[in-house]
Design a protein around this nucleic acid. Sequence first.
DNA 1: ATTATTTTTTAGGTTTGTCTAAATTTTAAA
DNA 2: TTTAAAATTTAGACAAACCTAAAAAATAAT
Lengths: 221, 221
Amino acid sequence: MNFTISEENYLKAIFHLQEKDGTVTTNALAEKLQTKPASVTDMMKKLSAKKLLNYKPYYGFSLSAEGKKIALFIVRRHRLWEYFLSEKLKFDWNEVHALAEELEHVSSKQLIDRLDQYLGFPQFDPHGDPIPDHKGKIKNVNKISLFDLPFNQMAEVLQVTNQSTEMLELLEHKNITIGTRLEVKKHFDFDHSVELKIKTTTLTISEQLAKNIFVTYEPGA
Amino acid sequence: MNFTISEENYLKAIFHLQEKDGTVTTNALAEKLQTKPASVTDMMKKLSAKKLLNYKPYYGFSLSAEGKKIALFIVRRHRLWEYFLSEKLKFDWNEVHALAEELEHVSSKQLIDRLDQYLGFPQFDPHGDPIPDHKGKIKNVNKISLFDLPFNQMAEVLQVTNQSTEMLELLEHKNITIGTRLEVKKHFDFDHSVELKIKTTTLTISEQLAKNIFVTYEPGA
DNA sequence: ATTATTTTTTAGGTTTGTCTAAATTTTAAA
DNA sequence: TTTAAAATTTAGACAAACCTAAAAAATAAT
C-alpha cells in the first residue's frame, strides 16, 4: 500500500476532476498535471494494473473504490497541512496550497492522525474545503453562496473561492474570515449589493464579493 | 539550486560520516545509505560535476564548501522537524527520526524559517544534536558525558546517545530529560555508579547510563 | 455515409537512480 | 617485491516517469 509521488498526484488529480466535472478525460488530466497525454496513458495502465482505476482504452477511466479511498487520504493530508500552515505558521491562504503539495506526500498515517489531533480535528481547510476524517470520510455540508443565502438566516463562512491577494485584503478589511457568523438582511436592486449583519454591526458588500463567499447553515435555525 | 531526494540523502550522509569519522569511503557511504558501492560512485560523479564534492577517482571525496552549506540546511530541516514531532505532536524520541527523514526533503526555506520561529528557535533537537540556524551556522558547545563531568559542576542534559525504549523508560522514571539541570556528587568505586543531585533530590545511576548521557556546562560556573 | 478533426494510444527514446558482474587500482601480506 | 586481498570504478542493464512522433479510434462535419 505504498505509492510514488507521481502515482499520488495522478490519483488526487483524477479525484478532483471527477468531483468537479463528473468525468475525466486524458487531455484534461494531462492539462491539470502539466504533462502530456501520452504520459497520462502510461500511468493509467499502471494504476489500472494496480486496481486503482476502472480503465478501458479509448472509453475513459474512473477511480475504483480502492483508488477513491487512497485519493481521500491524500486529500486529507493536503488539507490538514494547509490548515497547519495557515493556522500555526501564519501563512496566507494563497501560499499554503503550494507548500501542502509537497507535504502531502509524507504518508505516515500515524503522523497525520497526530497532526489532526494537535490541530483540534479541524473540519475545513483555509479555503473552506472539507477535511476527510481519519477513516477518509468527508462530512457532507449544505454549501451555498452568500448571494443566494435567504434573509435573516444565521450562517457561517466556510469557503472563499477566489483567493486573490486583492480579495483577501478586502475580506480582512471587512472583518470577514472563515468561521465568521453572519446573516443577510437585504439585497439592493440597483447594483445587487448585499447588506450583512455580523454580530451587531451592519455592512454592505458587492454582488461580486458575495458570490465568492460560501456559507453553511442549518435550514431550520 | 534544487536537488533530488537522492542527492540530498547523499549529501547528508557524507556530512555525517565526515563529522563522525573524519573521512568518507565509498563502502561506508554505501553501507550507510543501504545501497551498493557502484551506485555511490555514480552519484559521486554527479555531485562532483555539480561542484558539491571534491572528488578524485580512487582517492576519496569530501564535501566542497558549497556542498557543506547545503548539507547543513538539510540537517537544519531534519532537526527542526524532529523537534516539532517531539515537542508538538508528542512522538517519542525514537520515533521522530524516521518521520523527519521524509519531512526534511520539503525544501522551502520560508517554510522552515517559519517553523523555526513557531518552535521558538530551538537550539537542539530531541536527541540533543544542535540545530543549524537560518544561516546554516551550528552553535559550538562543550559536550561531555555525564560520566566524565567533574564533581559539583552544574550542567544541563543535552543529548542521549542510546535511545532504546528501555533507556527512555529508565530516564523517565528517574525524571531526567533534555534540559534537566544537575550535578555529579560522587563516583562509587565498586561498580562505578554515579551519584547525582537534581534540584534537592539525590539519586544514583549506573555507569552505563551515565556514559550515554551528554551534558553541557560553563567550565567556570 | 463518407470525410475531417479531435482524442487517445502505441512505439520508440531519454534521464535518473539503481543494480550485477567484470575490470582497475590501491593496500596488505608473504 | 611480487602476489593476494580489498576497495573502487567501469560497463552494460533495468524500472520509473517522462518525452516526441506516428498510428488508431472515436467524434463531428459535410
